[in-house]
């Protein structure tokens, strides 16, 4: 065993990369659930975002255009969920699961011609002095722009929910859609926008995997990240900063267990492999002991006539 070979600075830097896809998807889903909609299709929207982003950036040669395309792709797929649950009033759980299955299939189809292709590299932020600072440099100042976008988004969502009128209306719709409707808010319209936002975020998260973290396209490459994001939202008690903490914790342990293995730690590999899931759930369960509960209208179908 040689723990000294694990470099804590590089570890933190790479855990941030490993956490970003989950964080993006979780923040999107958090808004959706705050609006009272349970969309289980995160995995599907992520994988569609992954292939849309990959294909578009390969065709245009620009990763940024790819990310925009990924957000649009994720949002388009989520619009299917809008039609099903907000207009056709279908069951949200069933529609969400269908969205995941559909997304996985659709992405395989779209990705036929992109297997084994190399995407254009995403430029890293490279600030002349800051990036060269000894410890802070690699951790804070030498990532790709999307990673910073994820953190900014978390802050923005937190501020929006806590301090703004828009946040208040969103929460009202999620807590009691009948009351919100009686006050004259357009429940369906607000929920539609929330779902589209969630789709766009999930799409970005997926593209982060296919364009930066791996970077390559393969079928089913999100490998369950969407489900982890979904679970994070619940365990984080619908609070943005806790979602960030959970994502970093999960990413951190995922990266850590590989480092421990490489350093020759004599813990059986199977325990190391399951540790990210166990520890993330444990920590967030302890955190969520403050009884903050789910939005009261979560998963309930709204129709103005009821």
């Amino acid at each position: 065993m040689d723990l000294s070979s694990i470099n804590p600075v590089l570890l933190v830097a790479s855990l941030m990369v490993a956490a970003t896809p989950i964080l993006l998807a979780a923040i999107g889903e958090l808004i959706v659930e705050k609006a009272g909609v349970l969309n289980l299709g995160v995995e599907g929207m992520m994988i569609v975002g992954a292939i849309c982003g990959f294909a578009i950036s390969v065709e245009t040669g620009s990763p940024i255009v790819g990310f925009v395309g990924a957000a649009i792709g994720g949002a388009l797929l989520s619009y299917l969920f809008v039609i099903l649950t907000q207009y056709a009033l279908a069951n949200q759980v069933a529609s969400g699961l269908a969205l995941t299955l559909f997304g996985l299939g659709l992405s395989s189809l779209l990705g036929q011609g992109y297997v084994g292709v190399r995407p254009p590299p995403t430029p890293q932020l490279d600030l002349p002095v800051l990036s060269d600072l000894p410890v802070v440099g690699p951790i804070l100042f030498s990532h790709d722009p999307i990673l910073y976008f994820g953190i900014l988004l978390t802050a923005a969502v937190w501020a929006m929910l806590k301090f703004t009128r828009v946040g208040l209306i969103l929460r009202a719709v999620g807590e009691n859609h009948d009351a919100a409707h009686a006050l004259g808010y357009k429940v369906v319209r607000i929920r539609t926008l929330a779902i589209l936002f969630g789709g766009a975020c999930a799409g970005l998260g997926g593209a982060y995997i296919s364009l930066i973290r791996v970077p390559q396209w393969t079928e089913g490459m999100t490998a369950g990240a969407g489900w982890i994001a979904l679970a994070l939202v619940v365990f984080a008690s619908w609070k943005p900063w806790r979602a960030l903490l959970g994502a970093y914790l999960f990413g951190g342990i995922t990266v850590m267990q590989l480092n421990l293995q490489a350093a020759g730690v004599a813990i059986p590999v199977e325990y190391l492999a399951m540790s990210p899931y166990l520890i993330t759930i444990l920590v967030l369960v302890v955190l969520s002991a403050d009884k903050s509960s789910a939005p009261a209208s979560l998963g309930r179908i709204f129709h103005a006539s009821n």
Binding site: S5, I6, N7, L10, L11, S14, A18, R213, V214, T254, V255, L258, N259, Q261, A262, A263
Partner: peptide, 10 residues
């Protein structure tokens, strides 16, 4: 990719 990165970091 994660495994390769962990090994390279070490």
């Amino acid at each position: 990719a994660d495994a390769a990165k962990a090994l390279i970091e070490q």
